[in-house]
Amino acid sequence: MGQCPVNIKEYMHEYLDGEISPEHKQILQDHLAICSDCQKHLHELEKTTALVQSMSHIKAPDDFTLKVIEKLPKEKKKVGIKRWFSHHPFLTAAAVFVILMSGSLFSTWGDSNQFSVTKDPNIIIENNTAVVPEGETIKGDIVVRNGDIRIEGTVEGNVTVVNGDKYLASAGEVTGEIEEINEIFSWLWYQIKNGFNSIMNLLAGL
């Protein structure tokens, strides 16, 4: 082994990576022809990679996709509302009527559309998401409005999400209750009912 070129092992790896230069390849070939130790070394490396590659392919369990979907935060409001409208065409028409009549649906809604979260130095804000970082413990209740919460650490208290999604990481923990309120639906319903009343009043007045 004393006669082996300094970088001969490196050349072996370059060769195994399929990235050896012609000069290095020549040096490697010439040396392998006279050195059984290096021959053995390269052979063992090749055998190693062949063994690793021989491992059979593993498939995910059959219900894998289903389980992932079940754990996703619930579908976003927009999709939910779209679906709700398409399932309730009459009410949709009524809602459109109300919007046309009042012209104020979204402007009024917009007033209370600000993202807000209970103040705590350990809560991080990312865009419209409140994050309880891994390893942190929040003592007390958290209320998030018009945004999402991602819990990777621990919350010793209740978590309420108004108009947002909650996502609980596998390491995350909430000792109290978790509640999600989708305000827009109750609010919309309220507006539609009001709309009917005003239509009725309007008709009665004719």
Binding site: I58, F64, K78, V79
Partner: peptide, 19 residues
């Protein structure tokens, strides 16, 4: 926010990621 579309993506990559 479409869960079904994400399900199709999971189907494509689940074996590789699980492995």
């Amino acid at each position: 926010g479409d869960h079904n579309a994400f399900g199709e993506i999971v189907e494509i990559y689940k074996d590789r990621i699980y492995q």
